[in-house]
């Protein structure tokens, strides 16, 4: 079981490299049980959008 700290690292790396099947499963499992990390995940996606918008 991932800790939130490990999950946050994985959510960041997801933006830089493809996660392995094992990593994706572990992250999915963690997110299904952790509302804090689900919000963190949304915020990571939002930040990517912010920098896309800057260049549009």
């Amino acid at each position: 079981m991932l800790s939130c700290k490990q999950a946050s690292q994985m959510m960041s790396q997801k933006l830089d490299r493809p996660l392995s099947t094992r990593e994706r499963t572990a992250l999915w499992l963690h997110l299904s049980m952790c509302s804090g990390c689900r919000k963190y995940n949304e915020q990571m996606k939002f930040m990517r959008k912010v920098f896309m918008r800057l260049k549009e």
Partner: peptide, 24 residues
């Protein structure tokens, strides 16, 4: 933000951000 086990401290847990388009 994390406790000794690597979980969010309750009061430092990520909060809900507003509507993305409104923010942008």
């Amino acid at each position: 933000q994390f406790d000794e086990h690597g979980y969010w401290h309750k009061e430092r847990r990520p909060s809900r951000w507003g509507d993305p388009e409104e923010t942008l």
